[in-house]
Nucleic acid binder design. Structure first.
Lengths: 347, 347
DNA sequence: GCGTCCAGCACGCACAGCACC
DNA sequence: TGGTGCTGTGCGTGCTGGACG
């Protein structure tokens, strides 16, 4: 019998223990937690004192069985891609987990069972009571998840805008505004030929950012002719940036739709003997951890991740509680972080 | 009444439904899932067929209430530090979540309630049945978590070695071997003066990596005199690298104990007009996503994250099941990823 | 007695409805 | 009466002990 009882630290404290110690019934203790306004103030104070004295914590299993809720938020982590800059998962996750705890929720991360059956995984998570609602990120062009969840009435929120047809609760960064800030910054430095390197048209995020560039250029009376669209990888961006630098009247600055593409632009510039941050100004988007580390340190548009996380959790929790949303679609204004990759145009 | 019943997609399928459909008792269905060897083969086949036909999934809440287990693995995400390179959280989390699902576990990420009361958070997670065991990373010098968990008999595993006193189940990267590979690589290029930039002594990881450098240098008949120890941030590393480059007979290569410190070395070199990857070779450790992006692309020691994650989950699941561990402490051999920051010494 | 399978109970909680002042 | 607090019940499982052949 030498083995320690690993799974049983000590007997759990239950509602009944608290009730006995406080001299009230189970239900009164339950109400003290879930419906405090049903108790007389002095009873409430007394029960609460006993609760904290005994260190009582409601059991999730039992509560979940009774209420049919897990108080768990599901988040399917996107698979890492070596040719894309690491996402800002670190800070985002931290912020989300923090906000969730504030609402007495927890965050469950999971991966799809198979590439094809991602939706099945969401179904399983729901059926087994492993999540009450979901947090979505990296919404793709024809993403099936929002519509699927919407049809089933499953609460979810998205970091990334949604078409009204498939969902109403989302938070996103105002890409147009972010890129416009980059244009303002560059014109302030004296640039007139500012190119844009974006994603293929039809991508919501990409179109948003490209639109911001176009209108900001127009606002400054500049021509928005120099642009290339390509997929969001370093290597593809380098090829696209090459085409921009091949233009007869070469741009003096490039705004990229992501940090990955900005790094690709660095490569293209160096390949023809141009020094980014001296001969060519470059602006990125996302402020990934790498942005501050590359040489020259990258000027980039930073997403307000903490605010986004807080809002997303707030919205999801409201949906889970069946409450109406105060704000359904929130566009956050990003900040331009100026580093060393943007300087006055040469000459 | 127009509002849809958001929380109730449709009535759940329970053990009883399956039992009725299969013409057996609840318990037999339960056994088909948890103790298949108690059933006659034909009964088992039949029941299993009905289970998959109805798409039955055991309810986590009920199961958790009965078994006193959540089938949840807790992971406290370390707070992001802007002056340190983003951790490799992305890939690690993905791998862990993947491995956990294979064992019918899920991963709950959480943050400490307060900086001081991290242990309280672990206690709460346990008490509320929000985790059965924990995954630890970033073990600090005098980390209180392993001992605390150990004393309470809480199952946990650590990514990062543990002193036998506070825990026996861990997986770690063989830092000494990784650094030795870096030394071999550099001597192969013709370097003789290879400095080491590490963490203050007493840090297990740091000592491990420093030891690898010392013994590899000795094996090559080289002097292991050039070393600096400092904290793991870019700025501190830059100052320490400065001191190395101030040495009368300047090293031609620097091996840093982390990618952050390698980037700090880049800065220090450039400040005195030395080009890393030409005048000075630099090797990092960790292969963070930024390593491939900095200029020159950083040669670095890569952690086998997938293997680590798989092993960690395997060990934790075994501990949770009360089974003996096949392997308690596993040292994984890292791989040197050669990029552009290491070249033959100048001259 | 052995191999299968089944009925009753308890896990800890929250809801409905009743009792009290 | 209305504000408070209490008792009975069931959520879906898995364990214990018993029944059947």
């Amino acid at each position: 019998m030498g083995g320690a009882a690993v799974t049983r630290p000590d007997r759990r404290i239950t509602l009944i223990d608290v009730a006995r110690a406080a001299g009230v019934s189970r239900q009164t203790v339950s109400n003290a937690i879930n419906a405090p306004d049903l108790l007389r103030p002095d009873t409430l104070t007394h029960v609460r004192a006993v609760i904290s004295r005994l260190g009582y914590q409601p059991d999730r299993g039992a509560r979940s069985l009774r209420t049919r809720q897990s108080r768990l938020i599901g988040y399917c982590v996107p698979p890492p891609d070596p040719d894309r800059l690491g996402w800002v998962l670190d800070e985002f996750l931290h912020s989300v987990a923090d906000a969730a705890r504030g609402a007495d929720y927890h965050l469950v991360v999971f991966t799809p069972e198979s590439a094809s059956g991602e939706l099945d995984t969401y179904a399983t998570m729901l059926q087994t009571g492993c999540a009450d609602g979901f947090l979505l990120t990296d919404i793709a062009r024809h993403d099936r998840r929002p519509g699927w969840l919407q049809r089933r009435g499953v609460p979810f929120v998205s970091y990334g805008r949604l078409s009204p047809r498939v969902g109403k609760a989302w938070v996103d960064v105002d890409g147009a505004s972010g890129v416009a800030k980059a244009v303002d910054h560059l014109t302030g430095l004296g640039h007139r030929r500012i190119a844009f390197l974006g994603w293929p048209e039809g991508h919501r995020l990409g179109d948003d950012r490209a639109g911001g560039w176009r209108s900001a250029m127009a606002a400054h009376g500049l021509d928005a002719g120099d642009r290339e669209y390509t997929e969001d990888t370093i290597s593809a961006a380098a090829r696209a940036a090459d085409r921009l630098l091949d233009l007869p009247d070469r741009p003096t600055a490039v705004i990229a739709a992501s940090d990955s593409m900005a790094v690709g632009t660095y490569h293209a510039a160096r390949n023809r003997g141009l020094a980014p941050g001296r001969d060519l100004s470059v602006v990125g988007f996302d402020d990934t951890p790498s942005a501050a580390l590359v040489t020259p340190a990258l000027t980039t548009v930073s997403q307000p991740l903490r605010d986004a996380a807080r809002l997303l959790v707030e919205m999801l929790v409201a949906r889970l509680a069946g409450e109406p949303l105060k704000r359904r679609a929130v566009l956050l204004d990003p900040v331009l972080v100026v580093r060393d990759s943007t300087v006055s145009p040469p000459g």
